[in-house]
């Protein structure tokens, strides 16, 4: 049995019908084609599927799609506006925080949620705030640098 679902993703509204068992991640990826949100583990451990829902970072594999009904969702596709990169995206490029790139979208969303709540974090706070996202390439060093850099840019 499918149920209606109204999702507001990146300021667009989608009317869908989904099964209760579908998670938000699969709906974003497979129904809406927003594959910027990644599938890494399905157990809520890797953070590659992190999106921001009503201002909170959440793991979209651990949320029923139907629980997101009516909620505002931001995915990596919505991070840049009018072709203008978000400062975090700029910093990830400038500070060379990207390698294979598969964790990058989730990392960016976690970083955004972090900076939204704490615009001026310390290195420790960044490391703490990102620990729900696994990166296997970078050793996190440049990622943490990039987030600190973005915080500074946004603060200016």
């Amino acid at each position: 049995m499918k149920y209606p679902l109204k999702l507001h993703v990146n300021q667009r509204t989608y009317n869908l019908e989904v099964y209760p068992s579908q998670n938000l991640r699969d709906v974003l990826r497979e129904e809406l084609g927003l594959t910027g949100t990644k599938e890494g583990c399905s157990t809520g451990n890797c953070g590659a599927c992190t999106v921001i829902m009503n201002g909170m970072s959440v793991k979209s594999c651990l949320i029923l799609a139907l629980q997101a009904d009516g909620k505002e969702i931001l995915t990596v596709e919505g991070l840049s506006t009018n072709g203008q990169l978000h400062p975090l995206q700029e910093s990830f490029i400038d500070k060379q925080a990207v390698q294979c790139g598969y964790c990058t979208p989730g990392m960016l969303m976690s970083a955004k949620a972090l900076l939204d709540q704490n615009p001026n974090p310390t290195e420790e706070e960044v490391r703490d705030g990102l620990h729900g996202n696994i990166c296997r390439c970078t050793g996190y060093v440049k990622i943490v640098e990039a987030v600190l850099d973005a915080a500074e840019k946004i603060g200016q």
Partner: peptide, 14 residues
């Protein structure tokens, strides 16, 4: 990097 920070980079899993 640009493709990857915007979520547009093509991966087969997508």
């Amino acid at each position: 990097a640009l493709e990857k920070v915007t979520g547009k980079a093509p991966f087969v899993y997508d």
